[in-house]
Design a protein around this nucleic acid. Sequence first.
DNA 1: GTTTCAATCAAACGATTGTTTGAGAGTACG
DNA 2: CGTACTCTCAAACAATCGTTTGATTGAAAC
Lengths: 220, 220
Amino acid sequence: MTSAPYASRERSTKERILGAAEALFATHGFAGASLRQVTAAARVNLAAVNYHFGSKDKLIEEVFRRRLDELNSRRLAALGKVAGLDETRLEDVLDAYIRPALDLSRTDGGGAAFVRVLARAYAEHNETLRRFLSDNYGHVLRQFATEFARQLPGLAKEDIYWRLDIVTGALTYAMADFGIIQRKHEVAERDHREVAAEHLIRFAAAGLRAPSVSNSPATR
Amino acid sequence: MTSAPYASRERSTKERILGAAEALFATHGFAGASLRQVTAAARVNLAAVNYHFGSKDKLIEEVFRRRLDELNSRRLAALGKVAGLDETRLEDVLDAYIRPALDLSRTDGGGAAFVRVLARAYAEHNETLRRFLSDNYGHVLRQFATEFARQLPGLAKEDIYWRLDIVTGALTYAMADFGIIQRKHEVAERDHREVAAEHLIRFAAAGLRAPSVSNSPATR
DNA sequence: GTTTCAATCAAACGATTGTTTGAGAGTACG
DNA sequence: CGTACTCTCAAACAATCGTTTGATTGAAAC
């Protein structure tokens, strides 16, 4: 029923499709990667996508759900270990937010590609996709916002959300490695992301601790 | 020769195509927006794109060049007014970097759409496009890096580039309005971006002033 | 008036798109 | 055995893609 019909030779057809789709969506975009490219890379018949997922759009959704469920629970688990504690520093909360994304990008199963897919999702600005992400991410972001608010009593709730958005943008951009400045080639990919996470946490912690904008409106 | 054949009724065919392409690329992506959609929106014959630009790829390049040339020179002009001066604060340099992007997104001619196109370009991760941006943006970024280094003598050159990348990522995503948290509908678009710029500058200034990562490697 | 040339137009080009079809293979259950 | 069911496959579907063609327009040059 739920298991494969006969002992699968390596990975199931569905998983092979998801993996190939993830990689191709990352490099060519959702519209740019065709189902023929995907099925060829997965060494699967063209009709398999519509048979297993129903349509290309459903396949895209499934690519997200597979990783986001994991990323969601990991972030919440990490947050649960530090939330509400007296000795918790701001950096610990940031680490709970950033580190799971970093770990995801280092999984052997192609999670690195998904980080780029996620960055594309933000760029898509598609209302359907946005609602999908909001439904799956909204409550996680709210929990983090609560803990950030506890760490930063001087900030208004609105400021918190603004800065979390900024952190998310910077995180997405950095994890997807969109830098204009070329990296040295001798630096390995995973070392690169590790360094990126350090810089991000350091930068974001200082940015979050900045004086409130709302309390001092005379900025310009 | 360079002028229109007869007094143009409103805007030239090339300009109408560029405007329509910019808007459609922003919402549907480069692969997602077809030339038939573009030419229909511009009220222009389908063949006009290939006649005036040669191909779809060349059209994409031209969409970038039109705005980037302006953004480039505005940023350098703003930087020139504050660079090297004793009374210049870090926030002034950041303002020179961020404000022109904000102004661009408020132009009536659809510059707001271009900001989203720019965000897409980063997500594209296309090597050709990356080189194009690096050629047009590289020297600007280097000049800003020099001034930032002057303002932040405690930071290593590598730290400067890392943090400039972070600022660029946060700027790109904030300006393109990719926030997961829904905004209040009563807030107008241009007010929204104005507030975004204030938050960004405040956040980025504090982040840039954070202690160097390189000088204290014991982060985790 | 005639030539010249840039610009626009409808129509078609072959290639590729997502999706559907119907036959066939292979396992499980009775 | 036969029936049932899941999955795979080659082939075709209509639609849409970027691009090209050849005719036609209209103003400028001579």
